[in-house]
Design a protein around this nucleic acid. Structure first.
Lengths: 113, 113
DNA sequence: TGTCTCGCTACAAATAATGTAGCGTATTGC
DNA sequence: GCAATACGCTACATTATTTGTAGCGAGACA
């Protein structure tokens, strides 16, 4: 059951068939380690290796793949000599995630007991 | 300190080694279709089949798997006769996602243009 | 030179997702 | 009663993604 080319292409985001940016974004962020990577870059640039370690020693394959996607999406950039960091746009995104930290605390308390 | 069983066991989330709820949450949400499912339930309950269709005809296997995870996480519940819907906690989470819609619009304009 | 680290890639094995079919259980209409 | 339908959910083979390990070429440092 083939999907349209725009969705089958490697770089494209699933769910973008609709042309609704939110779907493309949800898809991009819903890939393994993507949210985590944005999170780890939230307040400091990290080299690719430091990032891997920060992400529970995720494999370089997937970290590089996610970084490529995030760079293509204009959310992350590579500052030579400094490592990866969020772009201005990436920082905007990260801002929308700040309440998530607080929520996570509430959530873990409510789920565990 | 170890997280509650529901977050440390096999069913639970990668990245929870640290015991930091945010990691567990980021991992849970960073699984394919999870964000999308929460999004689709944002303002109306949906039956499992309606949800599949809303999610670009995702396979029932994965939708059911994600729903199980989200139910175990206390974010989604099944109301018999009504379908799946966000719990109070799930609605709190969804609230933190609202700015995402607006961001997605900004993002798509900046990336494509 | 040798030894670092950097960003990044290759590649086989393991794991997860996909697409299709169908189960058992209600609920409806006849 | 009895199909027809929709529900939540599962089986399973195919395909895609992720993982883990190893290592490349380039640059900095000594």
């Amino acid at each position: 059951m083939p999907k349209p080319a725009s969705v089958t292409k490697k770089t494209a985001v699933r769910g973008s068939r609709s042309g609704r940016p939110i779907m493309a974004l949800l898809d991009l962020l819903g890939r393994r380690w993507t949210l985590r990577i944005v999170w780890e870059l939230r307040d400091t640039p990290l080299t690719s290796r430091a990032l891997r370690i920060a992400c529970d020693d995720a494999s370089p394959t997937i970290v590089q793949a996610r970084l490529s996607e995030l760079r293509a999406a204009g959310l992350v950039e590579l500052e030579p000599g400094d490592g990866y960091r969020l772009t201005a746009l990436g920082r905007e995104l990260e801002q929308t995630f700040l309440p998530l930290h607080r929520f996570a605390e509430r959530w873990s308390k409510q789920v565990s007991g």
